[in-house]
Design a protein around this nucleic acid. Structure first.
Lengths: 241, 241
DNA sequence: TATTAAAATTGGTCGGACCACCGGACCACT
DNA sequence: AGTGGTCCGGTGGTCCGACCAATTTTAATA
């Protein structure tokens, strides 16, 4: 408790969230622990109680803590209640990437996206197609943005809202963006993905769900392999320094 | 005695969150809309500005709004940024179940859980097995709780943290709990699920990933079919009234 | 007309006050 | 010994009013 640092950021309560979240995810605060009273904690952090409470509201929404009126604030077990939003933070807990968690995330993506493509081929409209084609042909968009936009369009065309929202998680977590930058550093990968765009577009256009699914799956397998390889090389380099 | 439900205390800011969330999900507040200033909105809602701000912090965490210092609070497109936590609310938007969203959620579950079982069969420890057996044999737990606890144990045994956290979503959203109650109302379904417990336990115990995966998949297909059927019957009944 | 400076608007933080709820201690009665 | 009643300190929940900080709008100026 004594190691909480006062902070100065653009938004104080965000800094508090980050600090407390880190302490929970790292195990410094464990399941069942009772945090100090808001008044005390606010004083320790050199912030107003209102500000601290705004931070607590976010932590509560992340299911990291449970706030009991008249009692106190208790740390919850994030493995039992934690939110998906925690995964990016969890993956970076040690400075670099936690490869096990990264692989788990890639597992999730590989399990879901092929079926998104499948349903997209079944339910896409002419408008969906037009938008997809526009994105694919548009040269004014960065590789990263184009990639994420296309996936979003495919998901929307599936008319499956849970699919769309799960994809948001991958797109907005910043995770995919980071990996894509590494991935697209290799021109061969750009070529492979560009081919993928054409293939998946055709398959969805022609309403071929099974083929769409396979095309998506193959691309994901390819991209996963490359990405893991790149990360391993980085790790080795860092390790030798 | 058993029918007494603990009444939930409602915190003011939670009511505000629910109210604003509903207006956003229903489309009354659209993407890009600027909300009234905190001071005005607080007065309209008859609450203090601090209280309103706590609500805003939660809405921001749900990615339903974007707060810009010196500018205002803007509604975001939940289809582009929305959080998984929104799905339960979205599914109940019209009073009953939005069947399309429900099916999408079942899709997700069916895509993921079989592979959770697969990895669980590969990575489970003796301790995992012991806990699973304890849950399966324990007669003192409600059907619902036992079901959710077993799934959680299977997920943990997979040693795949993203899997565990995704499963939390299904377990904690209240969604599965509701459906399970309907599902377990039929003794045949209880029998089928009890058989599933034994089968999946054996398969995981014997480290048979493919068999575990298939057992999980078959059970999910069965349960989905039954659940959808029950819901359709309910809809028809309600429609005839 | 374009630029710049002041003013207004709006979210962010603050300090202090009071209310609502919980838990434990203590008491009265059985 | 056990049950219920009462009280009290601690803690989260809400409120008030003020000022700070970022942005937008408006007005003054070149």
């Amino acid at each position: 408790m004594a190691t909480l640092n006062p902070l100065q950021k653009t938004r104080l309560h965000e800094g508090i969230v980050a600090q407390l979240q880190e302490k929970i995810l790292s195990g410094e605060f464990r399941d069942g622990d009772k945090l100090p009273p808001e008044r005390d904690l606010a004083e320790s952090l050199n912030v107003n109680r209102s500000t601290l409470r705004e931070a607590f509201k976010k932590l509560e929404m992340l299911d990291l803590v449970e706030i009991r009126h008249g009692d106190g604030v208790y740390v919850k077990d994030y493995l039992e209640s934690g939110n998906l939003e925690l995964l990016p933070a969890l993956m970076r807990s040690g400075g670099g990437y936690d490869v096990a968690i990264l692989k788990g995330l890639l597992d999730l993506r590989r399990l879901i996206l092929p079926d998104v493509a499948y349903q997209s081929a079944l339910n896409r409209t002419a408008e969906d197609l037009a938008e997809m084609e526009r994105i694919i042909r548009d040269g004014g968009i960065s590789l990263n943005d184009r990639d994420m936009m296309l996936y979003r369009l495919i998901a929307r065309a599936s008319r499956n809202i849970p699919f769309v929202i799960v994809l948001n998680f991958f797109n907005n977590s910043g995770l995919v963006a980071e990996l894509l930058t590494l991935y697209f550093a290799d021109p061969n990968n750009i070529k492979r993905t560009t081919r993928f765009y054409d293939e998946i577009f055709e398959a969805i256009r022609d309403r071929k769900p099974d083929r769409s699914k396979k095309i998506m799956y193959d691309l994901l397998i390819f991209a996963e392999g490359k990405t893991i390889k790149i990360l391993n090389e980085q790790l080795n380099k860092d390790g030798m320094k």
